[in-house]
Amino acid sequence: MNQTPEFFDSSDKRSMDEIHAAAFREAKLPEEGAEPGPVWLYVVIFSTLCFGFFYIGRYLGEISDRPHVLEEGAMIVSNEPEPPKPLFKVGEKVYRQRCVSCHQENGQGVEGAYPPLVQSNWVTGNPDRLVSILLHGINGNLTVNGKVYNGNMPAWETLTDEQIAGVATYIRNSWGNSADTVQIATVADGRKKITRVAPWTEQELNDVFKPQLASGAKK
């Protein structure tokens, strides 16, 4: 800018009144009052202090580095057996936590990557095969209802027998699927019978398992 804005131009010869008209329409800053304030204010202050000290006294917990002191037993793994839940319920919870991100809420999977669980013989067929897939995962292509899917499935051997049985039961009986319950013993057997490190491939699965068990399939 080649022109200095006039508000800090020192050669400005006009009077103060003109330059700072705005300041002259102000009132002087009035001196503060010295009112004591309403009584209820002191009541509020006093009760807040009381609450504060009560809160510290009640919830201080202990002077240490431990978190979560107030939530009883938060850090201790309970030894008491939980009341048994129906396998379907156990499975629903596991499915929501671990399976939905690939197979989706509706069991439809993702085209090209994660196969649908709905109307799939891999799910409703031989329970031993299903359990083994859950325990060891799958690599490579998998054909479901004529379409090829190639997303890898991780091994879930860290889940308990009950969780595996539950989730197998859940997917066999949701979204219109209907097949019999997978027993916890089936999972335990499956764990013992087949020990492998690598995930399954479609070929291997077909070599080892029959698509249906004579007693297993209802469909």
Partner: peptide
């Protein structure tokens, strides 16, 4: 919850793929 490396890569590339 989700040990699949492939899934994570797909999900990062575009979360709406999965």
């Amino acid at each position: 919850r989700q040990p699949g490396r492939d899934w994570h890569l797909l999900h990062l590339y575009n979360p709406r793929t999965v």
